[in-house]
């Protein structure tokens, strides 16, 4: 049968995510590049004891308060989070994840951003571990193995391997090739490359041949399912006008 990766609904796309799954979620700190509908489908689906790997732990409130993966923490679906920016930027407005981390209900693995990126990339690229100078001499170093290269001390960091990736892209073709828009790219391409099952939320799906091969960022081999954002929900690319930005 010819390859067609289109999945009709967000609920179907996440239906087989089991309890205890390790899930990568595309996200940086703002609304762009976050797979909002897939996250909310996962919240409805209700899988528990999840390990979430994302840049933030949701609801950090940097400059725009918007709907991200904080709902998974609010629902008590998460047992562990691997992130570089896990806490709210405002001590007086702690995020749901932050409260659960401080209460010992959710385990936190704090990883410098570049190390997080490289651990995800390596997991997708068949590299089990690598040495990096980042974090040497800090509490991040912990008990990690130290080796010197060219006169610099470096830490041994291990690759991350996930079961599922929820990613956000701009357009897909039916074969799963993805292109992005502006700064939405961030963690999405390496997460797509990493997971056993990658599910992409996109604005538009085109026929094979509808994307310029020179412009494809994530080749379809890394993508298992694609789901189109419903047009009738509207998708203004305007943080303040977007319907999923929380009203103050």
């Amino acid at each position: 049968m010819a390859i067609n990766k289109i999945c009709e609904t967000f609920d179907k796309a996440v239906a087989d995510i089991p309890d205890g799954a390790i899930i990568l979620i595309g996200n940086f700190a703002g609304p762009g590049g976050t797979p909002y509908y897939l996250i909310h489908a996962l919240a409805r689906q209700g899988a528990k004891n999840l390990t979430i790997i994302a840049n933030t732990a949701g609801g950090i409130g940097l400059t725009v308060d918007y709907e991200d993966h904080r709902i998974l923490f609010e629902n008590g679906q998460v047992k562990k989070v691997i992130a570089s920016f896990p806490f709210s930027t405002s001590a007086s407005k702690p995020s749901p994840a932050e409260k659960q981390i401080l209460a010992g209900k959710v385990e936190l693995e704090l990883v410098p951003q570049g190390t997080l990126a490289e651990r995800i990339r390596c997991g997708g690229a068949g590299i089990p571990a690598f040495y990096t100078p980042t974090g040497y001499g800090t509490t991040i170093a912990g008990q990690k193995d130290v080796k010197w290269f060219d006169g610099r001390p470096c830490l041994l960091e291990k690759a991350i391997k996930a079961d599922f990736a929820l990613v956000r892209a701009y357009k897909a073709d039916k074969k799963g090739n993805l292109v992005y828009r502006g700064t939405m790219r961030q963690f999405n391409p390496i997460m797509a490359m990493n997971a056993r099952v990658t599910i992409a939320e996109v604005d538009e799906i085109v026929e094979a041949g509808g994307l310029d091969p020179e412009a494809v960022v994530t080749p379809g081999i890394f993508v298992n399912r694609i789901v189109k954002v419903e047009e009738n929900l509207g998708f203004p690319r305007h943080p303040e006008r977007s319907f999923w930005v929380k009203k103050a």
Binding site: F28, T63, R181, P189, H238
Partner: peptide, 24 residues
């Protein structure tokens, strides 16, 4: 534009000569 933000999550503009890339 939500797809055009800096690392502090502020909306920014692109300039002639701007480029986009992934986190790695």
């Amino acid at each position: 534009d939500q797809d055009l933000i800096n690392a502090s999550c502020q909306a920014v503009t692109a300039l002639p000569g701007s480029s986009y890339f992934d986190i790695v």
